[in-house]
Design a protein around this nucleic acid. Structure first.
Lengths: 215, 215, 215, 215
DNA sequence: TATGAATGAGCCTTCATTCAT
DNA sequence: CATGAATGAAGGCTCATTCAT
């Protein structure tokens, strides 16, 4: 078999996690470093040398842990997508009314941005480009899943009369998705505006609009 | 050396000819081809060869028209930014109440997407990356201009009591900007949803929210 | 389309040949240089840098003419195989008795060694290794063609009573083939023994054996 | 440093155990594995990792047994060459007439192919390449020994009138050598044609030729 | 204006080898 | 004996760019 290179490593473990699992600690470190660079500079533009430099090793040494640069993003994205899908599933399982569900979906989207900030950015920036390779088929699948999840909730809300009838759910979904996820481009975890504040602003604007309630 | 290569070339069709001007027709064609490729595939990933292939010439021949690949994006982006800024200026000059102004700003943002679709995409995708080079300083400047324009209007609206007081204008601005401009990623000019419909949906959602007005 | 890289180039043109055909003269030169190196040092071991050095250009420049190192051998081998197969076909077309046919087949095998010396060596040394890649399927096909050609003639000779009955044609074919083609490993075009002499010795030994006629 | 690594290891089974000796049993196993891979895939192309994989250990662990990849072939080839030379010496010692001697030399060449099949293949394929390194000087020496052995016998046969006068012994030797040893490329120990049959066919063809004895 | 040949720098990857544990 | 992490050198290939014709 291969010399190491087995998958499974957690990325920026956002809690306890990790356990005595397979992917060595070193592996996870390297993945986190790569994720940050991919997010900051772009996947194509980031060289394996840069990753290696940042890790304090030689570029060739990376291949002791990973098959390729591609397999690094691959792992990073899968990790994030799994996490996000789990969060959404949780919301749906405990869903009550559509309004609350939408609010929660928005909030949980922001939550992923804490543990998987780089991954979200990468997903945002590179998914389209990567999706053209067979290996990344799952990106399209995940994207479709997300769309289905959201549009279903929006439709239910419309039928229940809680969401505007003149809403084109497809457009609405995309607007919300982009509004929420592009946040990652300017959100600064060490800045004044923390994720919660931003999340609530988004909930407010997207649900109620920017104008004051009409008397 | 360079016989042509000077800037000024119009990119995509927008309105009045341009005939006779400096940038030859061929130049404009090449720029349009490049813009489409940059938008579709990404600036870094698009090779000069691909552009040349699409134009039916050899890659070296491109350098008769342009100094470099960079100077191509440069022209493409400048063109679009000029156009967009002119449109915004028009809106502001004829501004009445904040609510109408915001609506118009949104509409005019969508308008640019018709004539400068590729340019908008490129701006969306590559600005951050390009802005790190001196040559593209104007990107940051434009971005700041946009932010100033919008936040001013939003603040005025708040003071006038027409926009919610609990609005963080910075966040609101970014939400609106991203919601509007990321449209370019999925907007299909030949699809069912034309730009106007999408624009109105955005106006509605962003101004009134997705929920039905409460009695 | 591609920038150059079209196939068709003659390799070590063994006569007038070449004409104003497609593959530029430069291309043919490079191919000849590559062929010599592949033959002398082995395909895998020869680096594109070495080829480029021998040609007085940079390694990257080779890719202006060829898609890859592989496509270089590919062309070299195809060229030779075509030539050899044409020669064999000529022999068969004008075939009279089996004994003469075999003699001619041997002679024509040696003839290819003059114009395509390097190619023959490469074929000898690398065919097995290369044949494992789809792209080189034709190697196996050519090999089978050769075998069919030879074994048919040998069988006919046996039926005609001119070749020994106790001959295993498969073994005989392989013995002859290898005896003839491995010559390339030690044959020195500028040495004392010219191709004709060697050919005749082979004809004699293979047809009559090394022992003196008895009786 | 090296605790084992010293030469002497027997390669493939040939005869009497070897137990207790320096080269541990493991060592011999590894060598056999390496030999098979070198033969099948080529020395340069075979990676240490592949050998290690086939042996179920990590590539680094091989260096507990051997100094380098080179020292592996080295041992493999020495082993075979020793064996072959011993066989030839035996033939010469008990030599009677040239015709029988040649026959026996051919037979003993085939004999080595049973115990040292991979080694023969490696010798066939890589000798030329390896001989360029000082360390493998003995390859050239062995090759010369073989040539001397054979040409002497052939000359004696000519003088005795049993081999054709018009024979160029150099060419004849090479023809025989190559005819015999290239067999290894297609000989399948588990195929229909066993080594003995092949050997006898070679003896017949090389001594008597493929044509029927003329009345 | 365009071609065709070449440059030069850099990229991803491979691989034999080392060595602390 | 073996693992796991790393080294360092090299290899095939890409690509923006130049320039003589």
């Amino acid at each position: 078999m291969a010399e190491t290179k087995r998958s499974s490593g957690r990325v920026q473990r956002p809690a306890g996690a990790d356990a005595g699992s397979g992917g060595s600690r070193r592996r996870a470190e390297l993945l986190a470093i790569a994720a940050d660079l991919f997010a900051e500079r772009g996947f194509v533009v980031t060289t394996v040398r840069e990753i290696a430099d940042a890790a304090g090793i030689l570029s060739g040494s990376l291949y002791h842990h990973f098959d390729s640069k591609e397999s690094m993003v691959d792992e990073i994205l899968r990790e994030f997508l799994d996490f996000q899908q789990r969060l959404y599933a949780d919301v749906l399982r405990e869903a009550t009314d559509p309004r609350t569900t939408v609010t929660e979906l928005i909030r949980q989207s922001f939550r992923a941005m804490n543990g998987y900030r780089s991954a979200v950015t990468i997903y945002q920036n590179e998914a389209k480009h990567l999706a053209q390779f067979e290996r990344f088929d799952y990106l399209r699948r995940a994207s479709n899943d997300f769309e289905r999840t959201w549009t279903k909730v929006l439709q239910q809300g419309q039928q229940a009369g809680v969401f505007r009838e003149d809403l084109n759910v497809k457009i609405a979904y995309r607007l919300i998705r982009d509004a929420v996820w592009t946040t990652v481009h300017w959100y600064n975890p060490r800045g004044r505006l923390n994720a919660e504040v931003i999340a609530e602003q988004h909930v407010t604007i997207l649900c109620e609009g920017i104008t004051t309630p009409r008397g």
